[in-house]
Each structure stands twice: as structure tokens, then as C-alpha cells.
Amino acid sequence: MILVGVALLVWGLGWWVNTRLAEGPRAQSRAMQLLVPVIFGATILLVWELLVRGLQVPLVILPAPSLIAQRFAGSLPILWADFVQTILKGALGGYVIGCAAAFATAILVDRSDFLRRGLLPVGNFLAALPIVGTAPILVMWFGFDWHSKAAVVVVMVFFPVLVNTVAGLNETSAMQRDQMRTYAAGYWQSFFKLRLPAAMPFIFNGLKIATTLALVGAIVAEFFGSPTVGMGFRISASVGQLALDMVWAEIVVAALAGSLFYGLVAMIEKAVTFWHPSQRS
């Protein structure tokens, strides 16, 4: 009971500190923008730990953060093997192939106005569908190993990237294209000098959406069959053994991998589209 009381106290304290900081004079500074969410996150972890201990929540419902951290540190080799299998091979492999295929298709489609008008609605429609459902089919075709996971990822990332790229290549105004024509620029010259740079914000929007989809696809596809390694496999197997600390450790890995992957793409975006208003503010 004492621990529960402490938990409430910690919560109140964390909130009070954050209120002071957020209402304070230096609230707009960069350090504060970072500090406040960090304090909030730390408070939640602390309250979680105290509540789990104070109320003696059994492990099969919610393990304490300290237990998860322990498990995480204790099974680094397993987690690394799973990470390599699911993220590096399945998700990243599929992501690269899928995005490249979508990009190539977009350039093909872009040359014909007829195709573009037909493909955009169809692509938008397909991008909204529950494509994860193709996982059992692709697992049947490509076997249990990471190839089938990469295939699921290819299908999942293809349409968002395609639609965004086609929309982006359409972004230049008639005036700008006319100017390229007055320079006697050919198709590829005006493509590389004008239309591709102008499309970059859209393309990166698609690429960023696709990072999350890639991880979702690679993990969910493993629920339909996988070798005895991989994050999705480990999650479903550990859930079966009620080893929830392992499940949470895998979720931590997934969260870290997801934010890293997204952050990486966002960093490349920043370098490539430095000229865009959204990056200059």
C-alpha cells in the first residue's frame, strides 16, 4: 500500500514539475521541449514500476519495467538474432525492393497521362486495404524464411510510395515546365533538374509512411509461420509460454527499431529537401 501511495506521490510530483516547466519563462527553448516529455516518460515508468510492485500484479498480466530491462539485458543475443532476421532481412530487404519497384513504376506511369489518371484512384484504393492479409498467401509461396516476410513488405509499401511519387512528379506548375522547354531540356534533363527535386517532399512522405508499414508487415507475417527466430515468432511463442517479460523486451526492440528507421529516413529527407519551407522554419 505504501508503494501505491508513493506512486501517486511520484505522479503528482512529476506533473507539478512539468506544469512549472511548461508555464515557466523558458518553455519555448529547445532543452525544455525535450526535457518535459522525458520527465513525463520517466514518471510513467516509475509509476508503472511502483504500482506493479505495490499491487503485486502477477507477471502474466504486466511485468515491471525493471524486470523487462533485466530480461532485455539478459537476452541480448536472442534479441539481436531476432532483430537481424525480422528487421534487417525481412523489413529492410522488402522495403528497399518495394520502394525501388514503386519508384520505377511511378516513372513509367508518369510518361502517360492516361495511365496516371487510371492508376492514381486504383492505387489510393489499394493503399487503404488491409494488405497484411496477403501474408498467409505469400508465406505459402515463398516459404517460412525471411523471403516471404520481405515479399509481404514489398506489397505493403508499394502502393503508398507509388501514389505519393506519382502525385509528387505532378507537382510542378505548367509555367516551370514551360521554362525547362524554353531551355530546350529533354525529358530526362527536366526530370532530374526540375520534377524529381520538386517531387522529393512527396516521395519522402511516402517513404516515411512505408517505414512503419514495413515493420508491421514483417512482424505480422511471422504470425503465419516462420523459422524459430524472428520478432513475430518470439512474440507469439513467448505469449504462449506466458513469458510476458520477453514479449515486452521484443516490443522495446520493435519500438527502438521503428523510431530509428523513421528517424533515419527523416534525416535523409532533411538533407535532400533542405530548400523546402517545412524544413527551413
Binding site: T212, L215, V216, M231, I235
Partner: peptide, 12 residues
């Protein structure tokens, strides 16, 4: 949280 595959929580 939008960048992480929260669906991994589903089985649990």
C-alpha cells in the same frame, strides 16, 4: 508512437 509497430502488442 506512430513510428513504432504497435500491432506487435496484439497477441499479448
Amino acid at each position: 508512437s506512430q513510428t513504432i509497430p504497435i500491432i506487435a502488442l496484439a497477441p499479448m
